[in-house]
Design a protein around this nucleic acid. Structure first.
Lengths: 216, 216
DNA sequence: GGTGGTTCGACCAGATGGTCTAAATCTATC
DNA sequence: GATAGATTTAGACCATCTGGTCGAACCACC
């Protein structure tokens, strides 16, 4: 938690600090990230930084929490559903919002990757990453209840595999960002969802869904 | 490339250096990894380290190349096949060898993760990671030729997604290493393969294969 | 003893995360 | 506007660390 006084800081300065830190933490591991580079980029002094944060870990946790909070507010939740078809339609809608949001947040993917994958930061942001994973896991549990999600593997494993697949496809998209074909970005959520269905859905449902998609 | 004299170094010292470096590079990003910690762990002097390697990047590249080479030699290649069933049976056999090898190499997963995911090391080890990816991609291409692998997505994307799925399931296995149920480790390659088939195979084939697995 | 190879560790310039004193700025009151 | 007190900011400083250099000591061999 930052010092309470951080919330009262002038907004422009607050954003400058958080953005500069997000940039640094998105491109380096926590350990390699440098507070000196952050203050230089943010245009504040060392003393000022430590006036608002206990230490580097406090700053990192604040950046992650802020980014996740912003994403959740912008993306919103998943619409309600009563059957498997409704589940996947609602998830596609969610993926569309996620993709749009991520497209406007160049550092978010790198930040989340750091938070999830850097073995050294579990103590700092583990609560946040666990919360995200738990939310997705619960969502999959609701999918199981309506027959939309397979029930032969642990939900925790499915959630992690889905996150990993999403990460791989996101990076594939980003690497070709400048050479995307017309309509490719708009089609991406649906393409990603099909891959997720492959992994997450009962296989018969995935097959049927794909057959319908191919026919239309 | 290390200095040619490194190959003539006493084997115990050579292994000590490579193992110490592998340990450090497996647990930290390249930038955060410290040559001082490596020499302390290896029991050699700073001057000696730089007598054999140009710099930290040279050491890193050597460690990665050595690890990959060792893995390739121990795991071997994939058996030949003439049809889809043969492809997947041969891949399962390969996964078994991979799993066994990785179980005996605690640092290898972390090392490969560093090599693939650390955006800063592309110039250092990009040739090696590209080669691994290309090998898998070619293998998938041969799978396409016998109808074992789907042909509706780019092979590069499929290879990356498969790597990501493998990484997620590997980590899932490792985190529960001390509480694995009897037979769980032995069954892991087949479980992993089923997930890969979901992503890589034509959906009808994946469904048929799973039905057979469930029946037996 | 001479030569070449190997190893050591002091040294270097620069960087790190965090501390702390003093100056600058802000706010409230008169 | 002046003043006092509170808050914020700057940047020098600190101990420690970094990757890499280099002169000298050590070792093996002839």
């Amino acid at each position: 938690m930052p010092r309470p006084r951080f919330a009262a800081l002038d907004e422009r300065k607050r954003v400058a600090i958080l953005d500069a830190a997000a940039e640094e933490f998105a491109h380096r591991s926590f350990e390699a990230a440098s507070t000196n580079r952050i203050i230089a980029r943010a245009g504040v002094s060392k003393g000022a930084l430590y006036y608002y944060f206990d230490d580097k870990a406090d700053l990192f946790a604040t950046v992650i929490e802020s980014a996740i909070g912003r994403a959740e507010r912008a993306i919103g939740g998943m619409a309600s559903f009563v059957d498997a078809a409704g589940f996947w339609a609602a998830l596609l809608d969610l993926y569309r919002r996620i993709t749009t949001f991520f497209a406007g947040e160049p550092n978010l993917a790198g930040l989340l990757k750091s938070a999830f994958d850097d073995a050294g930061v579990g103590e700092i942001v583990g609560l946040h990453t666990a919360r995200l994973l738990a939310a997705f896991r619960d969502l999959l549990g609701r999918g199981v209840a309506v027959g939309a999600v397979r029930d032969d593997l642990p939900l925790e494993l499915l959630a992690r595999v889905a996150f990993a697949v999403g990460d791989a496809t996101d990076r594939w998209l980003l690497e070709r960002w400048d050479s995307l074909e017309p309509g490719e970005f708009e089609a991406y959520p649906e393409r990603a969802l099909l891959l997720h269905m492959r992994v997450l859905a009962p296989i018969e449902l995935a097959e049927k869904w794909e057959r319908q998609e191919t026919a239309s």
